[in-house]
């Protein structure tokens, strides 16, 4: 379980996170929703200790972050985290070199699933393939938690479908996933839990099936209520 407890973050005078708390469980897909600038990416960066927070704490399975955390949690930012001049094979080699949890079999499987060519350079990949390669780097790690920053944004419809398939596949089965998005339509049925953010705070936080069962509302309905105010 990833527990985010009352985290605060300022950029200069601007408060980006103003006491955000939520939990993300293993085996569930938790979706951080907010219109742009709501601090979604900052939360993921904070979980990975890629940016300092000015208050609160983050626990992963009850522990504070430390270097081994990166063998438990993988983060897939919205841009690929490899050098553009590397080939796909080299990038995979790099991961294999540094991560004990790198699963080469899974990586090869993903490679053929996404139809990526190992000899291709990252700089020459299409947008969609870059996103897929980026996803591969995270998914091929045998980690307990996966964080994805806007995995669907800015790519073509077919790539999106292919990426969506990942969410219903064995590739993330049993893991805890946190994704951020500002656009829910595509994935409304794919997620377990929603954390709605605005102005640096959590406005609402619910399980989608419960929402539908108890209130008969869709996620978009709730978003409409929240953001129209």
């Amino acid at each position: 379980m990833i527990e985010v407890r009352d985290i605060k973050k300022k950029f200069g005078r601007k408060k980006v996170l103003n006491g955000v708390s939520f939990t993300a469980n293993k085996g569930e897909i938790t979706c951080l929703i907010g219109i742009n600038g709501a601090g979604k990416t900052t939360i993921l960066n904070a979980i990975m200790a890629l940016t300092p927070i000015s208050g609160g704490e983050i626990l992963i399975n009850g522990e504070k972050l430390h270097k081994e955390t990166y063998e438990r949690v993988a983060f897939i930012p919205d841009a690929i985290t490899m050098l553009p001049q590397m080939t796909i094979a080299e990038a995979m080699e790099f991961m294999k070199d540094f991560y004990k949890k790198w699963n080469q079999k899974r990586a090869d499987e993903l490679l053929s699933f996404f139809r990526l060519k190992p000899e291709e350079r990252i700089s020459s990949l299409s947008k969609g393939n870059t996103a897929k390669m980026n996803l591969l780097l995270g998914l091929a790690l045998d980690v307990e938690f996966l964080l994805m920053d806007e995995p669907f944004s800015g790519i073509d419809i077919f790539s999106r479908e292919q990426i969506a398939e990942v969410f219903t596949s064995h590739l993330i089965e049993g893991r805890g996933v946190i994704i951020t998005t500002h656009e829910i339509n595509d994935i409304e049925h794919l997620i377990d839990k929603v954390v709605l953010l605005d102005d640096g705070i959590v406005i609402k936080d619910f399980h989608t099936e419960e929402l539908r069962a108890q209130e008969g509302k869709s996620v978009v309905d709730v978003m409409r209520e929240v953001y129209r105010q």
């Binding site: 219903t168 064995h170 049925h189 794919l190």
Partner: peptide
């Protein structure tokens, strides 16, 4: 369950349920 989730493009937990 997983095949179903995959076919229907729904969350595997939902299929399970």
């Amino acid at each position: 369950r997983r095949e179903l989730a995959n076919q229907l493009k729904i969350n595997p937990n939902t299929a399970q349920r």
